[in-house]
Amino acid sequence: MLEKLYYQDKGLFLQSFHPATVLLYLLVLLVLSLLYDHPLYLLCLLFLLACLVKGTEGMAVWEGFLKIGLIMMLVLMVVNPLVIRSGATIIWQGPVVPLLGRLDISLEAIYFGLVSGLRLLVILSIFCLYNLMVNPDQALNLFARAAGKSALMVALATRMFPTMVRDLKRIKEVMELRGVDFEQGPLGQRVKKYAGLYNVLLFSSLEGSLEIAESMQARAYGSGRRTVYSRHLLRPRDYMTLGGSLLAMFAAVWGLAQGCGGFNFYPVMDDLIAGRGTLVVLVIVFCYLFVPLMLGGGYKYCRYIKSKI
């Protein structure tokens, strides 16, 4: 169950990018999701992400993310109208509550809650996509040059994590067969039972850490300056995606400066489509953002493109 969320190499086109490319691309998506308040833009981002998730065969994983997202979205939609007074279209006048003041529910606040929820879904999807597209080991490799020891510790901890979970399950079984019922008794007693489990695992793990350290020492760890092993390739697909991401970012910022893509909720909401500019910028930005998907399509259906990227 745990491995479900962890990156799986499925040999897909979208997984073949240089980790730096993917990181930059996802960063652009993240920044855009935080920059834009416009519902249309956020919806388009969600659509783009859905396509990408589909391209990485991660619909099942995405569903899990969406479920969490929808619950959080609900919370936002309830909290937001309760605390925000800036809306002009009051649809329900509530009583005065200490600390919070008068509870006036405005249409704008509900709407903003909805858009915040949408943004949350987009952000969650970006990270879901990260799990699907980037091999964490390779992403770590990017940072190894700057922070080698941290990267190494993260790698080692990630590698030990499944072992730890496995050990935990095994030790739990062993204790259950020795007569410990973890699910019974009052809380205090249960904690005591878990204490045994915890002790075994902690002690065994720390003993293991000395063995690992020895193996590292035998392979000359800490004997001097380390270098970093890297076998990433920058292919044309990476340059194109990198270019696309940067251009999209540039276009978005330029658009916002021109007033296209911005959206005001208070005191009264803007129109959904304020002018032609909004749509034009939308199309431009998303054309650039769709580059990896277009490349993926070309890779799949066109031999010529496949050989060139």
């Binding site: 020891k149 190494l152 510790m153 993260v154 080692l156 901890a157 990630t158 030990m160 994590f161 072992t163 730890m164 793990s205 720390l206 293991g208 850490s209 000395l210 690992i212 350290a213 020895e214 590292m216 020492q217 760890y221 800490g222």
Partner: peptide, 12 residues
């Protein structure tokens, strides 16, 4: 090596 291994194991 010891410190790195220990920190990583505790983190895991």
């Amino acid at each position: 090596a010891r410190q790195v291994a220990l920190i990583a194991i505790l983190a895991a």
